[in-house]
Each structure stands twice: as structure tokens, then as C-alpha cells.
């Protein structure tokens, strides 16, 4: 590794948060490169200085002042948890996920879908296909059922009966030969 690749790793090297492989690479580089070794040393000094800088403390009347402010503040009330959850869903960290989901939806909408994918599958065979012959057969069956229940209401049968009676009343010479 060269200096340009090592330098960004020095901060994590100080924190001992590099992988074993990266740590070994940095160690090797530092043993050969004085510039990076010096940079690391100065960075370590900077961090040490920052960590050891004197800490500030609040003034003695901090609590009294805070109590006075809290006394003027209305009592806290339980908030709706769902509102906080909803707000959390749209925090900046989650926006990339929402963007990817929107892109995926847009892709699905505009992607050409093969015809066979959207054609519905053929109907199952539990209902027979009705052709003209089958419809005629159904009508005939219904007709037979009706006439069996009330044969006198059957006009066709009545006409047939009337024509039979006419034939019987006619003179024998006028009957057509059968």
C-alpha cells in the first residue's frame, strides 16, 4: 500500500478498529515510511491533547436556574408513539431506502412485461364449455321436464292432438294414403 491509501486508515488504526489484515498492512507501511509514522504520531498527540483538555463544569446556580425554567414549562404529556414512529421512518438515514423502493416500483411499472405473464390462466374444467348444441340440448331437456309435469300446456302436443282428431273425422276416401 502507498501513503495515499494508508493515511485514511491511520485514524482507525489509532482506535484499534481496523481488521487484522489492514492493521498488518499499516504496520508494514509505517516501518518503512517516516512521513506516515510522523503523521500518526502527531495525530496521536492531537487526540491525547483533546482528551486531556480540562473539562468544563456548570455554574453553581445551574440547577436553580433550570428548576425555574421547568416551573414555567407546562407539564409533559404522553405523546402518541405512532407519530414518533412515522417521523422516524422519514429520517434522513432512511431516505436512501425509500428512494430505492420508489426506483424499484418505477422500474416495475415501466418494464415491458411478456404477454403470457399477464394473460390469465385457462379456466378449470369444472364448468363445461357451452356450445350451441349443448344449449339446444339443455332447452330440450327443460321442455321435456315441463311437458312431463303438465302435458296439456304443451302447445306442440295440443296442435298434434288437434290435427290427429281432424284426421279421424275426415271421410275415409279423402284420407291420404299412408
Amino acid at each position: 500500500m502507498n501513503c495515499r491509501k494508508i493515511e485514511p486508515l491511520l485514524s482507525e488504526y489509532l482506535n484499534n478498529s481496523l481488521s487484522a489484515r489492514e492493521t498488518l498492512a499499516v504496520d508494514r507501511h509505517l516501518s518503512e515510511c517516516n512521513a506516515c509514522a510522523r503523521l500518526l504520531n502527531e495525530m496521536r498527540q492531537t487526540v491525547s491533547l483533546l482528551a486531556s483538555a480540562p473539562r468544563r463544569e456548570v455554574s453553581p446556580d445551574f440547577m436553580a436556574n433550570l428548576q425555574a425554567r421547568l416551573a414555567q414549562t407546562p407539564a409533559p404529556t404522553p405523546r402518541r408513539v405512532w407519530r414518533d414512529n412515522l417521523r422516524a421512518m422519514f429520517r434522513p438515514r432512511t431516505l436512501p431506502a425509500w428512494g430505492m423502493a420508489a426506483a424499484a416500483c418505477a422500474l416495475l411499472l415501466f418494464l415491458p412485461i411478456p404477454r403470457h405473464v399477464i394473460t390469465p390462466p385457462p379456466a378449470p374444467n369444472d364448468t363445461p364449455v357451452q356450445t350451441a348444441d349443448s344449449i339446444a340440448q339443455i332447452a330440450k331437456n327443460q321442455h321435456v321436464a315441463l311437458t312431463a309435469y303438465s302435458p296439456l300446456d304443451d302447445l306442440a302436443a295440443a296442435n298434434l292432438a288437434a290435427s290427429s282428431a281432424d284426421l279421424e273425422n275426415e271421410p275415409a276416401g279423402e284420407r291420404p294414403a299412408r
Binding site: E7, P8, L10, S11, E12, L14, L39, E42, M43, Q45, T46, V47, L49, L50
Partner: peptide, 11 residues
């Protein structure tokens, strides 16, 4: 990393 590098440069 950038903060440490910048502060080191200033100090």
C-alpha cells in the same frame, strides 16, 4: 479522520 487530520494540521 478528516477532523483529526485538520486539527493536527492546525496544531
Amino acid at each position: 479522520f478528516h477532523a483529526r487530520a485538520a486539527l493536527r494540521a492546525k496544531l
